Amino acid sequence: MSTKLITIVTPCYNEEQNVRELYRRTSAVMTQLPGYKYQHLFIDNASSDGTVTVLREMASGDPQIKVIVNARNFGHLRSPMHAFLQAEGDIVGILYADLQDPPELFIEMVHEWEKGKLIVAAIKNSSAENGVIYRLRTAYYRLVARLTSVEVMEHFTGFGLYDRKVVDILRQNFHDPYPYFRGMIAEIGLPTAKVYYPQKRRERGITKNNFYTLYDLAMLGITNLSKVPLRLVTFAGFVSALVSFFLGVFYLIYKIIFWSGFSVGIAPLVIGLFFLGSIQMIAMGIIGEYVGAIHTTTLNRPLVVERERINF
């Protein structure tokens, strides 16, 4: 049997403090898998620090380090997906550059792959991040699981190991210019093994996630996997119309019976207007998310534009 190639894909953005240590630890892990060849593919998303300089130095000393440098920052979803599709390995791993996920887990992942699992997903069973944030993430994953018919893995970030067959399926059948990788993995439904680990707190550098990126990812997960929110909007519209109709009939009858003594006043009118207005705003927001997703898809733009390739 020919020697299998493992390609580890690492997305980077302003990670000059971490990439050397990440590569050192990953290389040490791969020496414990003597039956495999190893290649490390870094994709830099137009870092503004010295990340590209460090990667260039690393690549000059090791031909198995390959680097893609993007022309600009294409976001935290498009750049990793592009690198994943460029990977040459018989097995492809995803490992983020922040060192919160342990490269040492790849040994266990490879053993699971050898058992015939085409996807080996690394799942956080605890996290050193704020406890409230971790519980909010848990609640979000459970909400998505209720809204969709596919199995969505809780606390799965993409860190894992994937058979070549998975890469080929994603390349041939998914052409989303704004890809939700976790949703794609859930959608294809191939045999999956799960390995668990406690996620560490970031030690060097600062997180690139903020409220907008987290909200963007959360809404993308819902709109990519489920139409339930759209149907809830329709249902809410029917319920609101029904309630308004019966209230109108009630006030009409009450006014006819107590014509002289009953004064509705302006408060119910104002409350009703604000209630209906808020429902309309929520409905427009939900519909807008789906329209935005359709707009992004119809533009059919490339995932990234590359500025440079090193060691290819």
Rank of each mutant, 00 (worst) to 15 (best):
M1W: 01
L5F: 04
I8F: 04
V9Q: 03
Q17A: 10
Q17C: 07
Q17M: 07
E21F: 12
Y23I: 03
V29K: 06
Y36G: 06
H40P: 13
L41R: 01
I43R: 01
I43W: 01
D44R: 09
A46T: 09
A46M: 13
L55Q: 00
L55W: 00
M58D: 13
S60M: 13
I65Y: 01
V67I: 14
N70D: 15
N73L: 05
A87E: 11
L95Q: 00
E108D: 13
W113C: 02
G116H: 03
I119E: 00
K124I: 01
K124R: 15
S126F: 05
A139V: 08
V150N: 10
V152P: 15
F156S: 10
T157L: 07
G158Q: 04
F159A: 03
D163V: 09
D168A: 13
G183R: 10
G183I: 08
G189Y: 07
P198N: 12
P198M: 08
K200G: 05
L214K: 01
V228Q: 11
R231H: 15
L232A: 11
T234E: 14
T234W: 09
A236M: 14
F246S: 02
G248L: 07
I257K: 10
W259E: 12
G261R: 11
V264M: 09
L269R: 03
L276H: 15
G277V: 02
S278A: 14
M284A: 11
G285S: 02
E289K: 14
I294G: 11
I294W: 14
T296F: 10
V304K: 08
R309V: 01
